[in-house]
Simulated assay, not measured.
Amino acid sequence: MPQLTNLFPANIQIFVDLFTGGANVAVNIDSQKTYAFDINERLISLFNYLKAHSYDQVASVIEAIVEYYGLSDTMRNGYEYYQANSADGVGPFNKEKYILMRNDYNRLEKKFPLDLLFFTLIIFGFNNQIRFNKSGGYNIPVGKRDFNNNVRENLFQFMQALQIRNIEFQHKDFQEIDLELLGPGDFLYADPPYLITTATYNEQNGWTEEHEINLLELLDTLNKRKVKFALSNVLEKSEKKNTILEKWAANYHIHDLKMNYSNSNYQKKKETVILEREVLITNY
């Protein structure tokens, strides 16, 4: 985040987070007004729920969900209680309980607010990822963490930042958003799915060359109107190169970012380093 914000313009009037994802950028940018968009309707619904409730209310419901399904609570009981340790995690203990919770969510069981049932699935899910099958069912397997101290602290800090900023969350595809209100003094940040990488958000043709070209054309349009923008992306990864992006980026400023993904996936060896060139492309 500091690498990004150090490259962002100052004195932003309207900030647009075009692919809000986890909203980490949206809650860290000072602006008079922020619009945060995402194609994932359930994610936007969750953020609006968190905006409308206090941390204590949210934490209380998550604790009730954990108790109802009999999931682990290492904050209170530690790892030994579950015959586990921090390195290996509590996935084996939670697996069947997690699947039951996931099934209830996919059946839209309303024992609890669906937004927080969804969030609890993310907390207990593999790598805290979000993925749905073709039928719309959430299908991430169980992970090795639970609603521990770190998650609680991160949630508290996130909600604090969320509620002091003027952020409007909207469920929209980036191609459907009207950006005509933007002008000089405003700033748009785009962190789309990366064309040459594999992740849960660009499976099932979720991001194609057509999407890539449409986004780059949109940014060109903003540039002509003197709207500042920044685009996060990957130019190269291993033997792959995003030639569409490389050709387009030649007209703008390319800032290399220092990233290390050595432990981003705990199924891989910790010494593994994924070699890629991650960049921030700006028109200022």
Rank of each mutant, 00 (worst) to 15 (best):
Q267G: 03
N260F: 06
I62K: 03
L280D: 02
F19L: 04
E180G: 12
D56F: 06
P2L: 15
E209L: 10
L215T: 08
I12Y: 00
V234C: 01
Y79E: 02
F118W: 04
S232C: 09
V279K: 05
H255P: 05
K258S: 15
L188A: 06
L275R: 14
L100W: 01
Q204M: 13
I44L: 02
N283C: 03
T197P: 02
D256T: 14
E212A: 08
G91I: 08
Y82T: 00
V16I: 15
R102D: 00
L155F: 03
T282R: 08
T197L: 03
N233A: 10
D256L: 12
A84M: 04
V58D: 00
S262Y: 06
D88H: 10
K97N: 10
Q160H: 11
N77V: 09
I122Q: 05
I254P: 02
L235V: 01
Y69C: 07
K224C: 01
V234E: 00
A23Y: 01
E63R: 15
Y105S: 09
Q170D: 10
G89K: 07
Y35G: 01
G183K: 15
Y252I: 08
E96N: 10
K110P: 00
Y105P: 12
Y266C: 13
L162I: 06
W248M: 08
I29P: 02
N166P: 00
Y138S: 06
Q175P: 04
N139L: 15
M259C: 12
H211Y: 08
Y261Q: 08
Q175I: 10
I12M: 06
K95Q: 15
T20G: 00
N28I: 12
K51E: 02
I14V: 05
D178H: 07
V25P: 00
E236D: 08
I274H: 07
L117A: 09
L181C: 14
T200W: 04
S135L: 12
Y55M: 07
T197A: 04
L188R: 06
F19H: 06
M259Q: 11
K97S: 09
A64V: 04
K33D: 00
E209H: 10
N6A: 15
N265G: 09
T34C: 10
F124A: 03
S54L: 01
K241Y: 05
D186R: 11
N133D: 14
G185W: 10
E210F: 02
A84S: 13
L222P: 05
D186H: 11
L18A: 02
